[in-house]
């Protein structure tokens, strides 16, 4: 299996959305702030459902928020 990495631009999107805080985004999508922190840092890949909820907050498609990359050595 090829190792993969899911990156995201949530931090930038939050900044462009009137500097939305992590807590505000967490409340909107129904998770804890800790989870948003983990997603932003790339420590956790969210479930498909959560990814859609996050994308919906920013009125974007999922692939505009999350990017799937194959890591090649």
């Amino acid at each position: 299996m090829v190792p993969c990495r899911i990156s995201n631009n949530i931090r930038n999107l939050r900044f462009n959305q009137n500097e939305m805080t992590q807590q505000q985004l967490a409340d909107l999508v129904g998770v804890t702030r800790q989870t948003i922190v983990a997603i932003e840092k790339g420590k956790y890949s969210p479930s498909l459902e959560l990814a859609f909820r996050i994308a919906r907050v920013f009125r974007l498609q999922v692939e505009e928020v999350f990017t799937y990359e194959e890591v090649r050595n």
Partner: peptide
């Protein structure tokens, strides 16, 4: 304290 446990938890 968070009032719920989310998917990461």
């Amino acid at each position: 304290p968070p009032s719920y446990t989310d998917e990461l938890d």
